[in-house]
């Protein structure tokens, strides 16, 4: 497996979106490629960094989105 393909799969792996065959091939590649292995740590660090942006409450909480009334019948 080439590094370019491995990097795309690494990104999918942290999302749990690789097949068991892809996981097997990726593991083989990582055992032989320290730079791609390092990439895994970088991706995890990025995910941790992105969690710094927490969910916020809508500011106009009192104003619920309005649903038009349907005509009766």
């Amino acid at each position: 497996m080439k590094c370019s393909k491995a990097r795309i799969l690494l990104s999918a792996m942290i999302d749990g979106e690789v097949s068991s065959r892809e996981r097997f091939l990726l593991k083989q590649h990582l055992d032989a490629c320290p730079r791609c292995k390092e990439e895994m740590g970088d991706l995890r660090a990025l995910r941790a960094f992105m969690s710094l942006w927490p969910e916020e409450e809508p500011s106009r909480l009192a104003r619920k989105p309005s649903i038009p009334k349907r005509p009766a019948g």
């Binding site: 990097r7 795309i8 990104s11 999918a12 999302d15 740590g41 970088d42 991706l43 660090a45 990025l46 960094f49 992105m50």
Partner: peptide, 18 residues
């Protein structure tokens, strides 16, 4: 997603501590 993460890592390089 791969491209987005690559760009994010490159541009946030100075901020992310592993």
């Amino acid at each position: 997603l791969f491209r987005a993460r690559k760009r994010l890592r490159e541009r946030l390089e100075n901020f992310i501590i592993e």
